[in-house]
Design a binder for these strands. Structure first.
Length: 825
RNA sequence: GCGAGAAUGGCGGAAUUUGGUAGACGCGCUAGACUUAGGAUCUAGUACCUAACCGGUGUCGGGGUUCGAGUCCCCGUUCUCGCACCA
């Protein structure tokens, strides 16, 4: 054993306290020159503490932030706690420990763990959402939305989790109809709930996606979620009735092909339009629907069901009398809840009509088709109009506009854009969240709390019995207030806000979490937002990332920020699974990072997470390769010890003339500069695995040849190696630099090296020699050797000669410095 | 069902931007050195077939374009992710 092992425990805590004591990472926010706001999604402080997924999110992102800092950017990288939420409350129900107490305990533990990671978080900017100083501004935000009519209450069927005893947003219900948090089957319930009117921003949320540098996949998901579709609303009169049915369609060109109408079973018109003779069957059908779960009902594989109501509607364009049905494939929550069915040109309608023997009428003809051809499936493309009165013979595409025009002129319908996006349901019947600042007065109705009376503080003493009502409802001290308007006895709103409200604007608050004069410091926000780089899980694609964009635009509209979008660049780290499943306590497959950091240290663990593979990919956990990055650290430490004090021995040189170097020196010099170029490109694009591979290659070269170099080249090489090491293994790099003779922290200012481009090019290159495209040998020649010289060497090469004997050369392909291919016959 | 992406040694993964020596880097494995010892360290080797050389084969399978294909095109298989009656 030549050197002692790298004593990571001692060295990591040494540099961590050095950084902390010297406030190395405090960002001067008044300096906006080359400002760079790097943000990771803040942490939910659960009892499970930091796990590998957090490390995978935070470690590599911190590497990127440090790299940018060394390149001269004024980097702001904060960390905080998304501290409200259900799990803390569920924990309280189970154990009796108050959510506030458990959350604060968890935060204190997590803060210690975070500090041990050695990230450059600006701890002066730390925030948590569960304190009045923060959630007061959720309430303020609510009031601003309320003023503009963007926060409102309505009775609506909502997703209800019977286990968590609260409502869920659509996004929080998984594909199989279960609760995202606990996996319980979600039911539908009619409740009066608070909503934020995100739909007012649908169009802008869609358009804004074109301005931001986000993963295409995430943008597509948001586009689909917003779900814009253009079409028309058409009014169908009901025969022998004053009622009318309005449908939404994206295909007004098929209007002449309507053979029946479908309305959603829950639609209020159902009762009115059901003819007495049909009532029994309709009731039976409605019953059968109720017993189905949401998944069963909306499953695409299930056969469509439905019954007729006995009423008929009149097609406004041709006067056709068509039957009205109810069917489970019509959704109350989209469009008008009513569908005009065109079986000939819609797959769902075709399937339904075939099953119930309803009429099918063709109105669009595809190329090379005859009107009498048998229709085997719905024809959904465009084509020539038939059976469509005045529109016959025209192209269906152009008829969309013409028919809308016709409808509008005759007051039968209008152009209409529909969005799939629904308003954001923000109230939760739970305790551990931001109280909704509304007072309900019997006389005056719904009265907002005045801004000067904020915050409405969350009381500490409550009963945590899951009753379906917010625990706040049973706290008389909290609930009973005087109406701000008339002064009589009134009650507070007992619900709390969805925690996604907290995370919709936290990136503003980080800039000054103690700011008392407003939701955030507007001057700082103007200088520092939007966030330049945001890193977090892809699971937030249609929730947090959409809500934050909405709130950002709203804040802009009320004059609080100038930008249109909160996050200019977005990267999703991949998911680390274990044994094929996402790590979770309930599955018992959580890998505890402490076991690894206590064995190898933070730097080794961080390096390993980055080295495992592409950052966006994640992967299944295995610690098999961690000894590789451990060895890298050990050998680096050994190398610097071998050359301790080298910075003091030799004068600093910025470049060398490569022609004056020895062969070994040249090799070292070239590799150092090639690595700088490669490393820079890779880290900049979050390709940590290949960046580290390049560093390993450089280390191998230095171990081989550095002792054969001059003192000044040794100094040159180790200085550059150490600077590149700093973002990927910060503690180690600081220590190594100190060993080499550096006096102060690496991270004090700009410190990056440009490669010496003259040194990047090799003197000699290997050229692949191919016969008929097959590799036969390689030869080494000086750079830029011309074809005739290469040919001279090749045709005399013993490995090649035998392939050329008795053969005729038909063609030669020569690519300088790459290949020489001879085609023979 | 629809849409997007992917498939490379025993393993994680490079190379795909621009078609030009496939397997960088690391793990693991094999042999050797040092050692009281080695689960430490160092050196060498490591895609597969062939005893070895020569040679041949090889980037999911099948076809194609090209002097040349992991890379481009077509067909298929498998996997991952997203959407899932949105009229």
């Amino acid at each position: 054993m030549n050197f002692m092992r790298y004593p990571f425990q001692e060295i990591e805590s040494k540099w961590q306290s050095f950084w902390q004591n010297n406030k190395i990472y405090h960002t001067n926010l008044s300096n906006i020159d080359k400002k760079l706001y790097t943000l990771v999604m803040f942490i939910y402080p659960s009892g499970a503490k930091l796990h590998c997924g957090h490390w995978y999110n935070y470690g590599p992102t911190d590497t990127w932030a440090r790299y940018k800092k060394l390149k001269g950017f004024n980097v702001f990288e904060p960390m905080g706690y998304d501290a409200f939420g259900l799990p803390a409350e569920n924990y309280a129900i189970k154990t009796g420990v108050h959510p506030f107490d458990s959350t604060i305990t968890n935060i204190n533990d997590i803060r210690q763990q975070l500090k041990k990671m050695g990230c450059m978080y600006d701890w002066d900017s730390e925030l948590m959402t569960c304190v009045p100083a923060y959630y007061k501004w959720n309430q303020w935000l609510f009031l601003q939305l309320y003023k503009k009519g963007l926060a409102y209450r309505k009775n609506a069927p909502v997703n209800w989790c019977p286990k968590d005893q609260t409502v869920l947003a659509n996004e929080q219900v998984q594909n199989d109809g279960t609760c995202e948090r606990c996996g319980t089957l979600v039911i539908q319930k009619n409740l009066t709930q608070w909503f934020f009117k995100i739909t007012d921003y649908a169009e802008e949320l869609l358009k804004g996606l074109d301005e931001i540098n986000w993963p295409e996949k995430t943008k597509t998901m948001q586009r689909n979620w917003i779900g814009k579709s253009t079409g028309a609303e058409v009014k169908f009169k009901v025969e022998n009735s004053d009622e009318a049915i309005t449908v939404f369609t994206t295909r007004p060109d098929t209007l002449f092909g309507v053979t029946y109408l479908v309305i959603a079973p829950e639609h209020p018109l159902v009762n009115k339009l059901t003819q007495p003779k049909f009532k029994k069957d309709v009731d039976k059908y409605l019953d059968s629907i109720k017993s189905l779960t949401e998944i069963e009902r909306t499953s695409t594989t299930k056969e469509k069901t439905g019954v007729p109501l006995g009423s008929f509607a009149i097609n406004p364009v041709n006067g056709d009398k068509v039957p009205i049905w109810i069917a489970d494939y019509a959704l109350l929550t989209y469009g008008t809840g009513c569908v005009m069915a065109v079986p000939a040109h819609d797959e769902r309608d075709f399937e339904f009509a075939s099953r119930f023997n309803l009429k099918i009428r063709k109105v669009i003809l595809g190329n090379n088709k005859e009107p009498d051809d048998l229709l085997e499936s719905a024809y959904t493309e465009s084509g020539k109009m038939i059976n469509s009165g005045p529109f016959n013979g025209l192209d269906s595409e152009t008829c969309i506009g013409k028919i809308i025009e016709f409808l509008e002129q005759n007051n039968l319908g209008r152009k209409k854009i529909n969005f799939r996006l629904r308003d954001w349901l923000i109230s939760r019947q739970r305790y551990w969240g931001t109280p909704i600042p509304i007072i309900h007065c019997e006389k005056c109705g719904e009265i907002p709390v005045e801004e000067k009376d904020l915050p409405v503080e969350l009381p500490y003493d409550v009963e945590f019995n899951p009753s379906g009502e917010s625990p706040l409802a049973s706290n008389k001290l909290f609930m009973n207030v005087k109406c701000p308007k008339c002064g009589t006895a009134a009650k507070r709103d007992p619900d709390t806000m969805d925690t996604f409200v907290d995370s919709s604007w936290y990136y503003f608050r980080y800039l000054n979490p103690n700011f008392a004069d407003g939701i955030f410091d507007k001057n700082l926000a103007d200088n520092w937002t939007p966030v330049d780089m945001y890193v977090g899980g892809a699971e937030h694609a249609t929730m947090h990332l959409l809500y934050a964009r909405f709130i950002h635009k709203f804040l802009r509209d009320i004059g609080f920020t100038k930008s249109n979008e909160p996050f200019n660049n977005l990267i999703h780290q991949g998911t680390i699974t274990n044994l094929g499943a996402k790590m979770s306590k309930s599955k018992g497959n959580v890998v505890n990072p402490d076991d690894l950091t206590s064995k190898y240290g933070s730097d080794v663990f961080r390096l390993y997470l980055m080295f495992m593979g592409p950052y966006e990919l994640g992967g299944d956990w295995s610690d098999k390769g961690i000894s590789g990055t451990d060895r890298f650290v050990q050998r680096t430490y050994e190398l610097f010890n071998k050359f301790s004090g080298v910075f003091l021995k030799a004068p600093q040189k910025s470049n060398f003339d490569i022609l004056l170097l020895s062969i070994d020196e040249k090799s070292v010099y070239r590799k150092v500069n090639q690595t700088i170029k490669k490393f820079d490109e890779e880290i900049n694009n979050f390709r940590f695995n290949t960046a580290i591979a390049a560093m390993m290659e450089l280390l191998n070269e230095l171990n081989k040849n550095l002792d054969k170099c001059s003192n000044s080249l040794q100094s040159y090489s180790l200085e550059r190696f150490g600077i590149m090491l700093a973002p990927i293994a910060p503690h180690l790099a600081e220590e190594c630099f100190e060993i080499a003779g550096n006096k102060e922290s690496i991270f004090l200012g700009e410190k990056w090296f440009e490669p010496d481009y003259k040194a990047l090019i090799e003197d000699n290159v290997n050229i692949a020699i191919q016969i008929n495209g097959k590799l036969r040998t390689t030869i080494q020649v000086p750079l830029d050797t011309e074809q005739n010289i290469v040919k001279d060497i090749v045709i005399n090469d013993e490995k090649i000669v035998k392939y050329l004997d008795d053969k005729q050369i038909i063609k030669e392909i020569f690519v300088k410095n790459k290949i020489y291919n001879i085609v023979v016959k």
